[in-house]
């Protein structure tokens, strides 16, 4: 996901422009001279300016070059980085119907496996970690974690 400054700067210009434009269309509030539009317009314009400067390459001399990260070719290639956010999406959708323990077990197993863990590590981890987290959050912190199809026995 290394993009050139031209691209990221351009994205910021567009984003800032959109923010300022949609901010300016917010309705005024009766009885107030300064409404909800002022702040987004200010921020949006700031982003447009910054984005333009970045795209033009001003200020790059200050940057510390990021160390080169060698890409790993194994299991799923470049899309691997999307596994964590995808699993969070999975948690959001699945934790109610499946229950916390099952959802968490799947999450832990997938991450461990994708990071190259052996089955001897990944399976016990997927069994133990959800139980410990459930104990800590459900019992100690009273967070209502969903039961789903596999309620915890405590």
């Amino acid at each position: 996901m290394q993009l050139s400054d031209r691209v990221t700067g351009g994205v910021l210009v567009v984003l800032g422009g959109l923010a300022a434009w949609s901010g300016s269309r917010l309705p005024a509030v009766p009885g107030q001279d300064v409404g909800p539009a002022a702040f987004p317009m200010l921020i949006g314009s700031g982003l447009v300016i910054c984005g333009a400067l970045i795209a033009l390459g001003i200020g790059r001399s200050f940057e510390v070059p990021e160390e080169d990260v060698p890409a790993t070719g194994s299991r799923f290639g470049g899309l691997r980085v999307l596994i964590p956010p995808a699993l969070l999406l999975f948690y959001m959708l699945a934790s109610e119907p499946l229950g916390f323990l099952l959802t968490a077990g799947i999450m832990v197993f997938v991450v461990a496996w994708a990071l190259g863990a052996s089955m001897r590590l990944a399976v016990p981890l997927a069994l133990v970690a959800p139980v410990l987290v459930h104990l800590a959050f459900y019992k100690l912190l009273r967070v209502p974690l969903p039961d789903g199809v596999l309620p915890a026995p405590w």
Binding site: L102, D147, V149, L150, P151, P153
Partner: peptide, 10 residues
């Protein structure tokens, strides 16, 4: 098996 156990508990 898990589903069955869960249903029984519920």
């Amino acid at each position: 098996g898990l589903l069955g156990a869960g249903a029984a508990l519920l």
